[in-house]
């Protein structure tokens, strides 16, 4: 069944189509939520809220760009909204304070599992984590991130640089330094 038909069926309130839609996108979107949240419980809440919004606003999808891209934007925006609501993004905990994470001196970079990489990201304070996610993984520019988080472009750059430095230390890989 093509995407258009699936969307039409979902908009008509067809429960089976909605379930199919959920099954298609939920795993990848849960991965997105896990990156923005502190823990699995919060990520679950983000996912739930995001899918409620997706179904409520599916009629607004204009078939411009991929459907997955649209769903991902809704998920990211939901996560950001929740973080903003709790003033999490203004939490300026210093990165240096967080010293509990284990360094992986002997592990080759490509042997890190997704779970391990996720744990590293989740160890970052929310502000740094959010900027890192948006820049390194979602591919937004610092200018866009500044607008999204209501911070200056410079703040976004510096937070990203510090997050990156911290992650490299944790990975113990000097070869990840830029040439």
């Amino acid at each position: 069944m093509d995407e258009k038909q699936l969307i039409k069926d979902c908009l008509r309130g067809d429960a089976k189509a909605q379930k199919r839609f959920y099954d298609t996108f939920a795993p990848r979107m849960y991965g997105v939520c896990l990156r923005y949240a502190n823990d699995a419980d919060t990520a679950k809440d983000y996912l739930q809220e995001a899918f409620i919004r997706v179904f409520n606003h599916l009629g607004q999808y204009r078939f411009e760009g991929s459907l997955e891209g649209w769903v991902r934007r809704v998920v990211v925006n939901t996560a950001l909204e929740k973080l903003r609501k709790n003033d999490v993004l203004k939490n300026t905990t210093e990165l240096e304070v967080l010293r509990g994470t284990t360094s992986h001196q002997a592990t080759p970079v490509d042997q890190f599992s997704e779970r391990e990489l996720l744990m590293l990201i989740q160890s970052l304070p929310p502000g740094f984590r959010t900027v890192f996610n948006l820049f390194a993984i979602e591919g937004y520019s610092h200018q866009e991130i500044g607008k999204m988080l209501n911070i200056s472009e410079g703040t976004s750059k510096s937070q990203y640089a510090r997050a990156r430095q911290w992650l490299m230390q944790r990975l113990g890989k000097k070869d990840l330094e830029n040439e």
Binding site: K19, Y22, A26, Y30, V109, E114, A136, I137, N178
Partner: peptide, 26 residues
């Protein structure tokens, strides 16, 4: 940016099993 490359490549399309109960709540 190699860090961005590493995390982006491994996590952007990572699809873990979603937790139970989300669909029911939706």
């Amino acid at each position: 940016d190699k860090i961005a490359g590493l995390f982006g490549e491994r996590l952007k399309n990572w699809a873990p099993e979603p937790p139970q109960g989300v669909w029911e709540a939706v």
